[in-house]
Amino acid sequence: MTWMRRHLLDLQSLSAEELTLILDTARGFRAVGERNIKKVPALRGKTVVNLFVEPSTRTRISFELAALRLSADVINFTAEASSLKKGETLKDTVRNLEALNAEFIILRHGASGAPQFLSQFARAHVINAGDGAHEHPTQGLLDAFTIRERMGRIEGLKVTILGDILYSRVARSNIWALVTLGARVTLCGPSTLVPKVFEQLHPSIRVTWDLEDALRDADVVNLLRIQHERQRMSAFPSIGEYASLFGLTPPRAARLRPDALIMHPGPINRGVEIASEVADGHQSVILEQVTNGLAVRMAVLFLLNGGRQSDLGTTP
């Protein structure tokens, strides 16, 4: 299996072989992060632009460090401090960045489909760092990587994703990676945030609003942050009510399988979707996810960097 794509726009369109190649490659890069010298020359001379039209700190930092550890030069471009504020279109911004010979554009954007739009005219490799409620491919990859490293496999596992599914690009990317790699996915949360129609995406997806049912025999529980900023309507009465009905409290966590993993993409709202004791407990792999995120992003940059001259200008 060799990597042939120019861009990483979503996980929905990736095959199991492509996903596995990324995870295998990430394993090599995780080992680099454990060395004394944590840098390799794979992207020497290449320029990576972090184009974050929507604010983000941890994803940007993770991509920035990934690029730096591959020896690329990195420019951080945020909407607040840029020409986008002055009325420049996204297309013109990207053309300007390309005029500086940027080879990679990592785009975070509030609008679903913005990376896809960019990929239609950009000469640079486009990486989706989160677009609206659509996808956040590298988060889905790092979650899949963490599960595979901890459990030894993904196929056949029962993974529960708990929380705000409706507005979550993290949920969507997780769903696609997991079902493509053979896991069974249970989606759980308040019915207003977990519509039954998600079951129509794939036969391995199940929706339940019963938390006990979702936790009972799960191998992995992935908790999603309640996204106050993305909530356009009031999906549940109060944060306190959400915490009492769906928060992973110590008594609930105690009923999980003893070897089940507890995951969270961060930033965590302690006391809301997860209790402090659970977040810091021995089943939690939350910080490991952060470490793995770096390795996965290095792998994505490394794979996209490959290619031949004849591929330039074609999509995907």
Partner: peptide, 21 residues
């Protein structure tokens, strides 16, 4: 020792598979 990350033709060919160091 895997040398894939140190090759001088990365970017001119499909990315090589990584093997353990």
């Amino acid at each position: 020792l895997d040398v894939a990350m140190y090759r001088d033709d990365l970017g001119q060919r499909a990315a090589p598979a990584l093997m353990p160091t």
